[in-house]
Design a protein around this nucleic acid. Structure first.
Lengths: 230, 230
DNA sequence: TGTACATCAGTGAACGCGCGTTCACTGATGTAC
DNA sequence: TGTACATCAGTGAACGCGCGTTCACTGATGTAC
């Protein structure tokens, strides 16, 4: 893991190191077995810089990590919104959103644990602070309410919120158990998800499966950040 | 946290320290904000003993922690079985099992994270090793299959396993999100659980709620271990 | 065109800390003769 | 009844490690005059 000798950025380009720090932190969080044990010196080593150099750009490791986790959280939200935008019915939107969520979660286990799974100490995660995942959850609850089999009595805002929460617990439980208990005899993930959605949306499993997108083969990281799990 | 001067156990009673180590580890895992950061020296301090003394009884901290986590996992299983034994119908048994699971999980957040939540590194948890929670999960799947509204076509073993897994993801997601995202506007936990079970068992919410036991006020720790959350 | 100075992008050594682990030891208590 | 010895239940000091953070510094590059 010895780095090639890094040369100092030209005058006026101190920002470049900041970007490298962010990229290195993202890479380490994505690939470490236990991302919550990341240290400041590890980041410095990864970039090939003295530990003290980090303080010019971030007050401490917590700030740097929080920045990266916010990026990942926004990335997940964007993925779900993009998946939703390409659909033609409320049920298809629900399936698209949830599929995007679960696939991102199992495709990025390290990030998932740190961003959603509460692995980070208190304030470090984007969710334990101001937002708490409400944005993501609100979109989910709205979509679920629209996708439910029509014909029943109308639901209150409170009921929609509760149903969204319960759906989220299912999605989160699926991702987090799948990632942490790999030695269980798991059926295909898409199959589990389809049954889960069938339950929550009160639809037939086959109807859900027909709406599930194939696995995308393209990159799912924003430009400028490496696709660490390839 | 300074301990009173501990006096050496009498000859032949070296086992006593072993029990104290287990008790102290259990206490720390239960009360620490981040139980996964427990150290050997913390355990030694808690007992009031030199760090080196631990090696007479356990090869290292991993072995000690694994022992305690196994106790907690067995405790959870016993609680669920006891709750199930006191019921009069399959649906009541399902409700009893799941209620016991969720209440234990939110009542013992530290232990839950370490035992079920995958917070411990690899091999340390009782679930990541041989068992993987299959025992608990099998009982759940069986109970769910028996409790489902009768009249549908009979289900295969594979379907029962899948339905049990999906139920477990809901229970686990509920406990783990509830514990780690306390700043969300959560409805009453029992209410969420009732709706969750209504979905999975295909029953009316009120039917579930009528079967839910009241919160027990007695101790739920085995004799000899302190009830740490009182 | 030259030169003094300011700024920038970091460096390198040091600090004190808590950690896991080792090793020779200590002092009380039992047992053999 | 006395005494040498073995065992037991730990102790205490030391080790090397990686950590976060500090502080004075360095050397290249720009700018003012």
């Amino acid at each position: 893991v010895a780095q090639a000798a890094r040369q100092r950025n030209p005058r006026g380009q101190g920002q470049l190191l900041r970007d490298q720090l962010i990229e290195a932190t993202a890479h380490l969080l994505a690939t470490m077995d236990r991302p919550e044990t990341l240290t400041l010196r590890q980041v410095a080593r990864e970039v090939g810089v003295a530990p003290a150099s980090i303080y010019s750009h971030f007050p401490d490791l917590t700030a740097l990590t929080a920045h990266v986790l916010k990026l990942r959280y926004d990335e997940l939200g964007s993925l779900m919104n993009e998946a939703a935008a390409a659909t033609a019915s409320p049920l298809a939107e629900l399936v698209a959103r949830c599929t995007a969520y679960v696939r991102w979660g199992v495709g990025h286990p390290g990030e998932y644990r740190t961003v959603i799974g509460g692995a980070m100490p208190e304030h470090m995660g984007p969710l334990n602070a101001h937002d708490a995942g409400e944005e993501l959850l609100n979109a989910l609850a709205r979509t679920l309410a629209a996708a439910r089999r029509p014909g029943g009595e109308p639901t209150t805002a409170e009921e929609q919120w509760r149903a969204g929460l319960i759906l989220w617990t299912g999605l989160h439980g699926l991702v987090s158990l799948y990632n942490s208990h790999g030695n269980l005899p798991w059926p295909a993930l898409d199959d589990l998800l389809a049954h889960l959605l069938a339950l929550h949306a009160d639809r037939a499993v086959t109807e859900i499966k027909n709406l599930m997108p194939g696995r995308t083969t393209g990159k799912d990281s924003p430009a400028g950040l490496p696709d660490c799990l390839d």
